[in-house]
Design a binder for these strands. Structure first.
Lengths: 263, 263
DNA sequence: CCAAAAGTGTTCCCACTACACCCATGT
DNA sequence: ACATGGGTGTAGTGGGAACACTTTTGG
């Protein structure tokens, strides 16, 4: 929704195209150079940051909706995207705490006031997804109602996101840290060929702890999750690191066998 | 909904009390004596079995709704109940495959034909929960539209449940097996005091594999998850087994430390 | 030659595995 | 006495953790 007209059409006819009472919120994690960041946006007239989100089209599957929403925010397709929980408990989400006011501030940009029985004012449950991207590849193009966006280190996320978005992002992080042992998460955050220090630092960043380099390499190689290549990368005035690539076949086989990483 | 009147009221006025487009489905796992069973129901006029489910009241939280639905089916409260996934992809769930017919067969019991735009005919996403109960304690009281119910061993679940319920139950099982290593699942399926053979058999049943008795005991005691008591239980013409109880404090501490069971 | 980063091997120990015999109880 | 089920200990091993020096490279 990049123009006033699109927004107005959404407000007035969105209920015909989208399912009411349900939304999708995405915790988009971007990794780069020892930092794990999340994409936050701020809607027009709102003080607090939000997770990017959207609604589910009446004729698209849930998975399709999540990918579409992610693509609208990042312009990237085919990303790693994973559902992790559905939120329907918090007081803000129950409309027990009045949030129409802030909501209305946003839509006042297009000269609309939402009545309490407008579909956008109704109680909405949210299905949480998390995505992994290389945030240097992402070109964020804020939509019409979005005043601002930022990539924040997960440690620096403010305590006051809108609604229950703090809860959502905390659960996303926990899920990500649990999944890193069971999914080829690095595959989605690293280039096809990467160096050992790169993947090592990725794991250290996501898990917030130090991992012994030698043991790390040994384990990944022993399990056959990565393959060492003959090439090296030039990195300036230092020794050239070798390149590696993922062995996805082995990865999936290892997962089926129940082999599990741990550090 | 135990009378014709209640059902009629639900059909005609349910949309005022419940959120449309959303339901909850519960995989209710009952354990007893080496068997892991699931509660299935068959709605009036339907050939295939379903998971028990229900809708979310407009003024109750998601968690409250799940507990209420579970209590309606089992008459038990305070059970272990865990959300695990939200389903919105399958063709049946997209209304791409016509299921109104079967749906209508059910409601024909109260003389109602649902139009395609009736709220019960619309596309509905389902939030999956799984629960753990001792099925000997459960008194199933089928509702008005339920013709039949059964406890089936999870290995014997027919391949043709309604909608995507096979998918839901498979995911529930996978989640249960993953959670057994990280949650005091036995706590919800065993009496406060239990014998070692009891908890041992529970784990073997859920994980579908044999576990060495001695190693099993050693691990649970070493991690401090259970405490041996001074009491024994009389079990007829055999040696009296000792009783144990869970040490929930230690359990949560172990989880925070990241200690994890494995067998 | 120096600074910065990457490469690599060994030891130790704990935790998991495998395994079998004795004991208690009621009939 | 016996049938049934419960209780218990040890030895061996494999995988994880800890640990430091050498090599490469460009400036």
């Amino acid at each position: 929704m990049n123009t006033r007209e699109e927004v107005l059409d959404f407000v007035h006819h969105g209920a015909e195209r989208f399912l009411p009472h349900l939304s999708i919120d995405c915790a988009i994690f971007g990794y780069h150079d020892h930092d794990l960041k999340t994409l936050l946006i701020r809607h027009h007239g709102q003080e607090n940051w939000s997770l990017p989100g959207g609604y589910i089209g009446r004729h698209e599957t849930l998975t399709e909706a999540a990918h579409r929403i992610l693509a609208e925010k990042t312009q990237l397709t085919g990303l790693f995207l994973q559902q992790f929980y559905t939120f329907g408990d918090s007081a803000t989400r129950m409309n027990r705490i009045k949030t129409e006011q802030t909501h209305n501030t946003t839509y006042s940009k297009v000269g609309v006031t939402l009545s309490p029985d407008h579909w956008l004012s109704e109680r909405t449950l949210s299905i949480g997804y998390y995505a992994l991207v290389d945030y240097l590849q992402v070109v964020v193009t804020p939509e019409f109602l979005v005043d601002d966006y930022c990539w924040l280190n997960v440690a620096d996320i403010p305590r006051e996101l809108v609604y229950d978005h703090n809860e959502i992002i905390q659960k996303a992080l926990l899920t990500l840290r649990a999944h890193i042992f069971q999914q080829p998460i690095g595959y989605n955050l690293l280039p096809d060929k990467f160096t050992l220090p790169e993947i090592h630092s990725l794991y250290e960043t996501i898990l917030c702890k130090q991992i012994d380099r030698r043991n790390f390499r040994k384990k990944l190689l022993t399990l056959g999750l990565i393959r060492q290549l003959d090439e090296q990368r030039k990195i300036g005035p230092h020794r050239s690191p070798f390149l590696y690539e993922f062995d996805l076949d082995n990865y999936s086989r290892a997962l089926e066998d129940g082999s599990i990483l741990s550090f």
